[in-house]
């Protein structure tokens, strides 16, 4: 916390659709990321958590520069890097790199691993062949593979090995911020543990900052320092991992955390479940986006959109929530009964 944040987002909005089709019909606009503000400190791991359609991948791609933000500011090391054309944005954000959700699909099946890694360096203007070979070798051993993999093709690798290559391929460019998009989805438990261990090790070895996009809460709790919970394009709760997992404040966070099945048997009946499905991102409710499924919602919630504000008890930790009634929520969780509609109770 000595220096400023490495990455800072201020009211970032990303929109899909809009404009007119070639027949002149107006296209509906989807605000996939709707006013997101947070800072990322150097060396920390920040998790973006939410269900499918909540905008976490869109936000990651906006930060990377693959999608152009509609409005808002993105600062990297205090320097403004938003409002640029896509090419300029990518150049300005060269120290941010992205690991794809499915690295197997992201590797060219006709190219050997060596060729793929070499191309990365050639694109980034490392012209000395010996220098390229040295860096590739060095990075392969850092991710726990040997040089025999250079001659292999992607289909010859297991899921865990593909993740390692996906990681090696971007670490070779010496990034400072790495965006990991669902880095363990589709991996078996034992492979997942190995890959997570590797992420942890590399983070400390290279002093990396992680933005960890995931829906797996047990992984997030284990890996990340801070968590941002997203719902319908907005951050509804933000703060250090342990306080959020121990005492979540927003109703959605509480529902999400308690829906994650733990290894201790026999808790199903006590797990409060949300009613209905999330609303479509093209028809977000007025005011608080979560009010249609929230037991605490009232007229204020439909009239005013809650801002992300410090949670008073936990302000020193940087624990923030966007809810008009977070204090009511605290009271009902204190007596052990969650004020939420269970499916069975309908």
């Amino acid at each position: 916390m000595k220096s400023g944040p490495i990455l800072s987002l201020e009211n970032v909005v990303s929109v899909y659709g809009g404009g007119r089709s070639w027949l002149g019909r107006a296209q509906p606009e989807v605000r996939a990321v709707d006013g997101v503000t947070f800072d990322v400190q150097e060396g920390e791991a920040l998790a973006l958590v939410g269900e499918s359609g909540c905008g976490k991948t869109t936000l990651a791609k906006t930060v990377l520069g693959l999608l152009r933000e509609r409005s808002g500011n993105i600062r990297l090391d205090g320097k403004l890097v938003s409002g640029l054309t896509p090419q300029q944005a990518r150049l300005a954000r060269m120290t941010i790199q992205y690991v794809h959700q499915d690295p197997g699909a992201a590797l060219d099946p006709w190219w050997t691993i060596g060729h793929t890694l070499d191309e990365t360096l050639r694109i980034h203007a490392v012209s000395d062949r010996a220098e390229r070979a040295r860096r590739i070798e060095e990075m392969l051993s850092a991710v726990g593979l040997d040089s025999s993999f250079l001659r292999r093709y992607p289909h010859e690798l297991s899921g865990g090995q593909q993740r390692r290559i996906g990681l090696a391929r971007i670490l070779i460019l010496h990034p400072r911020i790495v965006i990991l998009d669902e880095p363990t989805s589709g991996l078996d438990l034992s492979v997942q543990a190995t890959v997570l261990g590797l992420f942890d090790e590399l983070r400390h070895q290279f002093g990396l900052t992680y933005i960890f996009v995931s829906h797996d809460l047990s992984v997030v709790r284990r890996m990340c320092d801070r968590v941002a919970i997203m719902y319908l394009g907005r951050v509804v709760e933000l703060g250090p991992t342990e306080p959020i997992f121990r005492a979540p404040v927003h109703s959605y966070t509480r529902a999400l955390l308690s829906a994650s099945p733990s290894l201790t048997p026999g808790q199903l009946d006590g797990m409060p479940s949300l009613r209905d499905d999330p609303p479509s991102p093209s028809a977000v409710p007025s005011g608080c986006g979560f009010r249609t499924r929230c037991a605490l919602a009232d007229r204020v919630c439909s009239a005013h959109r809650p801002a992300l504000e410090a949670v008073v008890d936990d302000a020193a930790n940087g624990h923030m929530a966007a809810c008009h009634h977070w204090q009511d929520g605290l009271f009902s969780s204190a007596d052990g009964s969650l004020a939420m509609h269970g499916v069975g109770a309908q």
Binding site: S190, G197, V219, R222
Partner: peptide, 15 residues
């Protein structure tokens, strides 16, 4: 060993 790989129980994140 498999249960010990679960992030909820894992001590040192080893597969």
């Amino acid at each position: 060993m498999l249960l010990a790989c679960h992030p909820e129980r894992s001590v040192e994140l080893k597969g």
